[in-house]
Structure formats: C-alpha cells, structure tokens
Amino acid sequence: MAETVPSRGLDALGFIEREGSHARVPHVFRPVVAAARDRLLDVFGARLDSAYLYGSIPRGTARVGRSDLDLVAVLRAEPTGADRDAARALGEALDKEFPEIDGAGTLLCSRARVLDERERYDTGWFVACQCTPLLGEDLAEFLPRYRPDSLLARETNGDLARHLPRWRQRIAAADDREEALRPLVRFMSRHLVRTGFTLVMPRWNGWTSDLRDMAAAFAEYYPERAGQLCRAAGSGYEPVGDRTVLRSYVDDLGPWLADEYARVHGVKAPRPEGWE
C-alpha cells in the first residue's frame, strides 16, 4: 500500500487550501458567531461589503473561555476613526456578553485594499486563505490561488524590522501589571512565530496556522534558534506578563529574525501611508 503523504495545508495541485469553514465551528461558539454576524450589520449597515471569521474558531481548534473571536469587516470605503471606535466597542460588547470567548476583535479594511494588486500577497492572501466568509460577497473569487513561495513569504512578513521600533515604544509605555503585559506578550509571540514560520515556509512547502507546528517547522532549518521560537509559541497560547520576555523579543530574537528574513526573502514592498 502506498504511503499517504501529508498535505501540509495544500491541495493536490500545491495551492494553499482555505483553512476554516462554518462546519468546523464548535457548537458552543455558534451563538457568538451568529451574534457577531448580526451586530456587524447593525454597526456598519450598507457600508459593509463583506465580513469574515478567522482564527481558531472557524478552524475548530478554539478552547472555551480561552480563545478569542477574530473578525474581518470589509467596508465599501476606507475605514474611518469612527469605524475603528465602533469595531472596538463591538468587540468589547461581545467579550462581555459571551463567557465562551476571551476577547473579540475586528480587523477593518476596504474592498479596494483587499483587491489592490499591491496587497495581493498580503491582505488578499489573508482573506482568500485564512478567512471564512460570514457576510456578503466572498472576495476570494477575485483573487488568485496561492503557493507557499518566497514572494508570499516576503509580502506577508517581510516588514518585521519596521515593526520593532513601535514594539519598543509599546513596551516602554506599558506598566508592569501582569494583565497589562500579557496581551503584548501574546501578540508579539504570535507575530514572531508566524514570521519564523514563513521564513522557512517555501522550503517546508506547506501552510499551517498552529503556532507549535510553525515552531517545529522552523526548528528543522534553524535548530540554534528552535528553543526561542518554541517558547514563543507557548507564550502565544499561554502568555505570562513578563517584561523580560518582551525585551528578549525586541533585543535579540526580533532583530535576528528581521535580518535573516531580509537576507532570504528580501523586504516587503512599501505600502501607501496608512496601510501599515
């Protein structure tokens, strides 16, 4: 009998498969998903072009009381400050009402940005491969299929060096309360693990959104840094508010990763002001 070769998130032709679906949403999370769908319409109305779920809930891996609800709202025009305030209030309301989730957030962008050629291998890829349609027209129909190649690697995470100064500012401005530092640890841990994974993604030839699988793939090619990324993966799921962890990210792992990324894949193409 022929041995089954793992798909590593690719279809039979080698394209990245869309990873989530409504069928995978665990039953316990379906009420919050339904509420989010209705409230997105209430908040944005006719300005809403389409909306999506992403993250652990549509992948079917969410944990009750530990996982957050991740949404994308695509508007017919560029989001305003008022739109961002409304999205923030929506997330806070959902988080307060539904104990099944630990936080809720909504990414905002315009239809034009999703379909812009400059965003084809970043926002466009994200919508087409990592997002599950929730409302409106599925913009993946207007986007290409994607392979785990160097172009995708460069345009998704080839901008880490530009993030690091802002990360240092956020760390300096944060107080030392564990509950204040924990979200920073989770955010930066996840970002670094995903960057480490996409650094090796073309050689590994596949896609995964599981942080520990990402770290394991990275370890195949950079064993000397494997322990750091493995610990970051753990912090991405179970963060502890520790300033020393954050400092290690911006003083050691982050700069090394940014330099190695630029060497291997190059630097992400500049975007218009306000798109960063």
Results as ranks from 00 to 15, higher is better:
S7N: 10
A233K: 00
L94C: 08
P144N: 13
M188R: 09
G227W: 07
G227N: 09
R88Y: 04
T132H: 13
G234K: 06
W275A: 02
A219E: 07
A77F: 11
L229F: 08
T156S: 11
A215M: 09
G9A: 06
A93Q: 11
Y222S: 03
E78R: 15
V193K: 00
M1Y: 03
R168L: 10
G227R: 10
C109A: 14
R63A: 15
R225I: 03
C230F: 11
T208A: 06
L107G: 12
L134R: 11
F29W: 08
H191S: 09
A36N: 02
R30S: 09
T208E: 08
A128T: 14
L53C: 05
Q130G: 11
P270Q: 05
P183N: 03
A89L: 05
P272C: 01
H191F: 08
L246N: 03
D38L: 04
L143R: 14
W125K: 12
D49V: 00
D251R: 08
S248V: 05
G91F: 04
T106D: 04
L135Q: 15
E141Q: 15
E117F: 14
G124V: 14
E178Y: 10
P183H: 03
R59G: 09
G45K: 06
R225F: 09
F44M: 06
R37Q: 11
C109K: 08
R113A: 14
A34N: 07
G60Q: 13
R190N: 07
W204Y: 04
S50H: 04
A180Y: 05
D70S: 14
